[in-house]
Design a protein around this nucleic acid. Structure first.
Length: 685
DNA sequence: AAGTCAGTGCTTTTT
DNA sequence: GCACTGACTT
């Protein structure tokens, strides 16, 4: 056995665990991923059929990485049938693979954009105005999703999402007035989803978990296909995901890893009870702990530990570095975003030219996607290659969705969103005509074939052209060819519609789309899983495009990521942007202890990504212009950020402080779209 | 009825 | 930067 040689005692004990179910509590940098990889490899080497091991993670990226690394440790093709997936894509696979069991095979998976479109359709011109409270369609989606993910009542979900979980007579009354209206709309939304054969992300989990809990036959069948379930990031699972995992306690053996101090998804319903109650809820289970940190130097862990100790929550955790001492973390004080961005660029370029570091040794973390926009502008101008993690996904880009809408129609003729998108794509067809055509399609789709309906609904050349196109795609068996056929028919229209940046940005995405499509055996799987594929996005502007699947791997680039997308990542140099008052904790969280503590964990996750050098930047002009504008209106009150700012009483000996002088020239206007907004120079104190 | 363009407001975090 | 709106043109 070659892998376990590099494991420490704790890791080895977990990897070679011989009992039924195990939870591994693993602090940041203690080799969580390594342990799960070694566990999979160990099981395979002990003779377990790799196809009976399922690895579950939260992102596709993490799943792929784990599977690849397991394979790398095994001789030749031993691990080829090992499967790693996100909870969502795994459920999708199960639904496709066992159509009779789950009865949802002919459905189309819809993404958040589609959900919003449906919700808007359902709301129509109905305004949800309740005095000062106006509920937007997106909020309705959020409420609906929270209720289903946490198994909470509508009343409680409304309370959490609209009233910050406040409990008093006034709030109770308001909720009771609002609730019936919301309920009506949500019911209409559910109905519409059903009619159009849609499954949203939550439905994927729900369909599978409901079936497994209520149907012994389903458990029976799955137990023949599964021996081990390995779950990563257990602290981020929510009650719905627990419902999904629970039946597997009697189907196979669970091996879960997680860290309560890194739980940062409660806005999505994550509940670290799933970690804390593991031993009580799972019979024949054990809990092991990993506490030795291999990633970071002690100085980096000191400040991370300090942050966690300040919390009212007791995490009972103090990371100890086995690597020993290194550089003191730096706290860099800047006075605006552009100065910050330029300082970061200087640091990286300096490390690159004088310190023998590559660009990919650097990880830049921001709280939100929005915040790194000015940094990206500076990187482009100063020619620092980068990729972004988190953010708009490839499949969500408008031009891709246009083409995919045609494929979706072929896949599921009940898919109204796809029909509307495809029909309005045709020249001379707007919303009104599209709805009329759609009407006819929906009325006849049961008894007639689509090409016929189309020709009736759109007399003349247009109709027959589309009808022919439909037939031609339908006749193809290879998904890549379907993309080709669709592209051939639509490329002129696409080029015109996106003429502004067609050649520069969009055109190159279609070969990538084809490549992606070719890797799926059926159209249904491509549409479902392709949507769920959280691949790195293509709007990193200066890298990627066609290169994604071949060359991107060996390119040297800085990674810019949201902290949420950075879980599991690590880097030699880690730079955390804007660790300023009103950002950590966020001004949005100020009157809610649970949210403040989640923000603390977010910062903790960010800090513990660093191996050798940790740099925190903060804006000393107290509050950035961005936040000024977006602040909630009732912010003026009680909570002084001086009380809550995480770095407030940071001991001097934990960091080295730097104050950046105003030495950088102004950024060129062309490269900095937000410049005027952001550096207005106004003092609002 | 559709398409275009300029002006406006808004942005936590993700499958 | 993005989505949405309203006024204008085709």
């Amino acid at each position: 056995m070659n892998i376990p040689d590099t494991l420490n005692d704790g890791q080895r004990k977990a990897v070679e665990f011989d009992g039924e179910h195990l939870l591994v509590l693993a602090g940041a940098g203690t080799g969580k991923t390594k342990t799960i990889i070694a566990r999979a490899a160990y099981l395979i080497q002990s003779g377990i059929d790799p196809s009976k091991i399922q690895i579950l993670t939260f992102t596709k990226k993490a799943a792929n990485e784990i599977v690849e690394r397991v394979k790398a440790t095994l001789p030749q093709s031993d691990g080829n049938s090992l499967s790693g997936a996100t909870f969502h894509s795994w459920c999708n696979q199960l639904i496709v693979r066992f159509p009779n069991l789950f009865g949802a095979a002919a459905y189309t998976v819809i993404d958040p954009d589609d959900q919003l479109s449906i919700m808007k359709m359902v709301c129509g011109n109905q305004n949800l105005d309740f005095g000062k409270l106006r509920i937007k369609p997106q909020q309705l989606i959020d409420i609906y999703s929270l209720a289903r993910n946490t198994k909470k009542s509508l009343t409680e979900s409304l309370r959490i999402k609209l009233f910050k979980n406040k409990k008093d007579a006034d709030t109770d009354y308001e909720i009771s007035t609002i609730k019936p209206h919301v309920e009506n709309i949500l019911r209409a939304y559910q109905l519409k989803k059903g009619e159009q054969r849609y499954l949203d992300y939550d439905d994927l989990l729900l369909v599978v978990s409901t079936q497994l809990r209520t149907n012994p036959e389903a458990r029976n069948i799955l137990s023949q296909h599964l021996d081990y379930l390995l779950v990563d990031e257990m602290q981020d699972t929510n009650p719905l995901q627990w419902d999904l995992l629970d039946p597997f306690v009697s189907i196979c053996k669970l091996f879960c890893v997680g860290d309560d101090a890194q739980s940062i998804y409660s806005f999505r319903g994550a509940d670290f009870k799933n970690v804390h109650l593991f031993k009580e809820r799972v019979p024949d289970s054990e809990v092991y702990k990993l506490e030795k940190n291999y990633r970071s130097t002690q100085e980096i862990l000191d400040i991370s530990n300090w942050l966690l100790e300040k919390s009212p929550i007791n995490y009972n955790k103090k990371l100890q570095s086995i690597r020993g001492s290194g550089e003191l973390p730096r706290l860099v004080n800047v006075s605006d975003e552009w100065q910050e961005a330029n300082w970061v660029a200087d640091e990286i370029l300096n490390n690159f030219t004088h310190q023998d570091r590559t660009f990919s040794d650097h990880l830049v973390l921001a709280r939100s996607q929005y915040y790194s926009k000015s940094l990206q502008a500076v990187f482009i101008r100063r020619k620092i290659p980068y990729v972004t993690y988190g953010g708009r996904k490839f499949m969500q880009a408008a031009h891709i969705k246009d083409l995919v809408s045609l494929l979706r129609i072929v896949n599921n003729p009940y898919d109204e969103i796809a029909w509307i998108r495809f029909l309005t794509f045709q020249e001379g067809v707007g919303e009104v005509r599209a709805s009329r055509i759609l009407q006819q399609v929906i009325e006849n789709v049961e008894k007639d074939d689509i090409p016929n309906i189309l020709q009736n609904a759109m007399p003349g050349e247009d109709g027959s052209k589309i009808a022919k196109l439909y037939e031609s795609i339908k006749s193809k068996s290879d998904v890549g060819e379907m993309v080709d056929t669709a592209y051939e028919a639509m490329s002129l229209g696409l080029a015109f519609r996106y003429r502004r940046d067609w050649n520069e940005k969009r055109r190159g995405d279609f070969p990538v789309l084809k490549l992606l499509a070719k890797s799926y055996p059926t159209l249904g799987e491509f549409i479902g899983e392709g949507l769920l594929d959280n691949s790195e996005n293509m709007n990193g502007m200066n890298v990627l495009s066609e290169s994604k699947l071949n060359t991107a791997e060996n390119k040297d680039h800085v990674i810019i990521s949201t902290i949420h997308s950075a879980k599991g990542l690590e880097a030699d140099v880690c730079i955390v942007l804007n660790v300023s008052p009103k950002a950590f904790p966020s001004a949005w969280s100020l009157d809610n202890l649970a949210e403040i503590e989640e923000d603390r964990r977010v910062l903790y996750v960010a800090m513990t990504r660093a191996k050798n050098r940790l740099i925190l930047t903060r804006n000393t002009s107290s509050i950035s212009a961005v936040h000024q504008r977006a602040l909630p209106t009732n912010m003026d009150s009680k909570t002084d950020d001086a009380d809550t700012y995480f770095l407030n009483d940071l001991p001097d000996n934990l960091v080295e402080q730097l104050i950046v002088e105003h030495k950088f020239g102004k950024v060129n206007d062309a490269a900095s779209p937000n410049k005027i907004d952001l550096s207005s120079g106004m003092d609002f104190s």
